[in-house]
C-alpha cells in the first residue's frame, strides 16, 4: 500500500517528505447542496521546511490543515506521514505525536480554567509521557518560547497578554517535540511588534530543531518573508505552488498575480497602476465549471469555462500552476485533465 502512496518528488534536490497529501477532498453537506471545501489537493511538506499555504478566507486552507491532522472527515484522498498512511488508530496516534497545530485566536485557544502549567502539561498527559519527565519538559518548552517558567506557570490565561497566550499555545505544541507544526494564522490577531516576536520564536525553533512549519495565512507578505515554498489556494484547490521567490516574484497563475498586486506596500504610494480583481470568492457549493477561477479571471480565454486545468510545471524547482495559459495541449484538447475528472456531486 505504502508504495503507491509515495509521492513523486517535485524537485530531485529537495529533502524527504515529512507529510504528503494526495488528491485530498473534503465535502460538507449543506442541506441539499454539497460544499467542496477541498477538491483534490496534493501537496508535499518536507522535513524542516517552512511551507506557506495562502489564499482568501473560504479557500479551504484551514480545512486542509484540519484534514491533514485527521480532525476532518475526508471524502477521498490520502494523507501520509513519512510515507505511511496516517489513518487508523496507529497512523493517527503517530501523526498526533509528530505533528502539532496552533490556532489563530489567542483568546480562544487556551482553556480559561486551566493554569499555564496544566495547559502545557496536557499533551504529555494525553500522550502518556512518563510523569517524572513532565516538570522538566514543561519548563523547557516555556523557556523555548521565551517565557520564564517561574513567573508564568501558575497564571491563568486571562492574566496573559495576547502575545503571551500565543507563546503558551506554542509551548504546548512543542512540549511533545514534534517534527512539524501547522500554524493557522498564528499572528493575524496580534499587534505588529508582538507579531514579529512570535514569528521570531517560531523561526528560531525551526532552525534550531529543524522543525517543519506550515503557515496558513492570508498575508502574502508574511508568506514571502518566512516561507521556503508557497502554495496558493483558490476555492478548494491549489492553483499555484513553488518556491516563495518564484511564486511571489514571478507569479504565473492570474489569481496569484492578482493577489500579489492587491497586497498593500508600506512604501509611500505603492502601486498606482494596480488592476484589481472584480467580484468575490464564490462559495464552495457553486464551483464554476472549467477552471474555477474563470468568472473572475482577467485573462480568461475561450476554453477556460470548459476545461479544468491541472497543475503543470511552469518553471524550474517545482514551480507549478494550474492554468490553461501554460497548458496549450489541454486547452486545445478540451478533455478534462486526468486526476481531476469531476466525480463529485452536482455543484449548485
Amino acid at each position: 500500500m505504502s508504495d503507491g502512496v509515495k509521492t513523486t518528488a517535485v524537485d530531485p534536490s529537495a529533502g524527504e517528505d515529512l507529510m504528503a497529501v494526495e488528491d485530498l477532498s473534503v465535502h460538507f453537506r449543506q442541506r441539499r447542496k454539497v460544499a467542496r471545501a477541498l477538491d483534490g489537493v496534493s501537496l508535499e511538506w518536507r522535513r524542516g521546511e517552512v511551507l506557506g499555504v495562502v489564499g482568501e478566507s473560504g479557500c479551504g486552507k484551514s480545512t486542509l490543515a484540519r484534514a491533514m491532522l485527521g480532525l476532518q472527515e475526508t471524502a477521498g484522498g490520502e494523507v501520509t506521514l513519512h510515507g505511511n498512511e496516517a489513518t487508523g488508530k496507529k497512523g493517527l496516534a503517530e501523526l498526533r505525536r509528530r505533528i502539532q497545530m496552533i490556532f489563530q485566536d489567542p483568546y480562544q485557544t487556551l482553556n480559561p480554567r486551566q493554569r499555564v502549567r496544566a495547559i502545557v502539561t496536557e499533551p504529555l498527559i494525553v500522550q502518556n509521557v512518563d510523569r517524572s519527565e513532565h516538570t522538566e519538559r514543561v519548563r523547557r518548552a516555556l523557556g523555548d518560547v521565551g517565557m520564564d517558567p517561574d513567573r508564568f506557570l501558575d497564571r491563568y490565561p486571562h492574566q496573559l497578554s495576547g502575545g503571551q497566550r500565543q507563546r503558551v499555545a506554542i509551548a504546548a505544541a512543542l512540549v511533545l517535540e514534534p517534527e512539524g507544526l501547522i500554524c493557522d494564522e498564528p499572528v493575524s490577531m496580534l499587534d505588529a511588534s508582538v507579531r514579529s516576536q512570535i514569528l521570531a520564536v517560531l523561526l528560531e525553533l525551526q532552525q534550531r530543531r529543524n522543525l517543519a512549519l506550515i503557515f496558513i495565512t492570508h498575508d502574502l507578505s508574511l508568506a514571502w518573508s518566512l516561507c521556503d515554498r508557497i502554495a496558493v489556494m483558490y476555492l478548494g484547490r491549489i492553483v499555484e505552488q513553488g518556491t516563495a521567490v518564484d511564486v511571489i516574484e514571478s507569479p504565473k497563475h492570474p489569481y496569484t498575480q492578482a493577489l500579489v498586486t492587491a497586497v498593500p506596500v508600506p512604501t509611500a504610494k505603492g502601486r498606482e497602476d494596480r488592476e484589481l480583481l472584480k467580484g468575490e470568492l464564490p462559495d464552495s457549493t457553486r464551483v464554476p465549471a472549467g477552471c474555477r477561477f474563470n468568472p473572475r479571471c482577467p485573462r480568461r480565454f475561450e476554453p477556460c469555462d470548459k476545461v479544468d486545468p491541472t497543475l503543470i510545471d511552469v518553471g524550474t524547482s517545482g514551480h507549478k500552476a494550474a492554468c490553461l495559459l501554460y497548458d496549450p495541449a489541454a486547452a486545445e484538447g478540451g478533455a478534462p485533465a486526468p486526476g481531476y475528472s469531476d466525480t463529485s456531486g452536482e455543484p449548485g
Binding site: S193, S196, A200, S221, S225, A244, I248
Partner: peptide, 22 residues
C-alpha cells in the same frame, strides 16, 4: 516597526523584533 514589517519583493527573513509589549 517599519523594519519588522514583511514587505513583498523586499528583503526576506525577519528583522530583529521590538522586544516587550506595548
Amino acid at each position: 516597526l517599519l523594519d519588522s514589517l514583511p514587505v513583498i519583493g523586499g528583503r526576506r527573513g525577519l528583522a530583529p523584533p521590538i522586544p516587550g509589549g506595548p
